[in-house]
Amino acid sequence: MSANLKKQFFQPYTGEKARISRAYDYLILVLALFLFIGSFHLHFALTVGDWDFWIDWKDRQWWPLVTPLMGITFPAAVQMVMWEKFRLPLGATLCVAALSIGTWIARIFAYHYWNFFPINMVLPSTMLPSALVLDVILMLSNSLTVTAILGGSAFALLFYPSNWPIIGMFHEPVQYANGQLTVADLFGFQYIRTGMPEYLRIIERGTLRTYGQYATPLSAFCSALLCTLMYTLWWYIGKWFATVRYLTKI
């Protein structure tokens, strides 16, 4: 049984109660930040993995398909909790911001200082614009269906154009070894990765490119469709976790 307050009897907290309530806010925020930095970053590393680790994996076909699809998971679940229980439209932005912090820490300390890769070779992608739009669509629509369809689609469709300003310059062509490479490919060739041979890259495979050579829009719309479903699935996962069964009085 959840707490049930009546509008006419509602009294806001004041004095000591208000201060403790605010302290509780900060405590939860700090804990949530560390929780999402750790858990979302781990989830992202295990599911998106190399597509986001390396500049020469960020292709026009699989990267824009996989990254938003795996990236919308935690935001959907946290949005459900934050919106349904608190009317706070910041779940997606909070998650993705935490992910960005975790990713940057890993790229700087694990990849650069520990394993000597130049940071520009392991630049993370950004999903913050997608997350902001997802949050405001939920706030303005107050609807799971609209957010799943419009927000989920926007989350996927905005991903590649958000990141092209970051990675576009790495797709400049270079003449190398009697062939043509991108600067990103050249990073993969020059900066030796013992456990990462070139053939392991899952890039440019499959038939998505067959529609007039436009691989990216096809991948992005495919991702958009899947994101609507993934959003809904993870919304309910969030709902499953966010029980107030034991909250009887507040």
């Binding site: 509008k7 208000a18 309530s21 229980k85 706070l88 910041l90 911001a97 950004t126 507040i250």
Partner: peptide
């Protein structure tokens, strides 16, 4: 993008959050 996201988060975080908002939501 981090600055824009931080701005959005701060916009909400500056107000009382969890317990206060939960109570208000329950009160309609």
């Amino acid at each position: 993008w981090g600055a824009l996201a931080a701005g959005w988060l701060l916009w909400w975080v500056r107000r009382p959050l969890f317990i206060a908002r939960y109570r208000m939501l329950q009160a309609g």
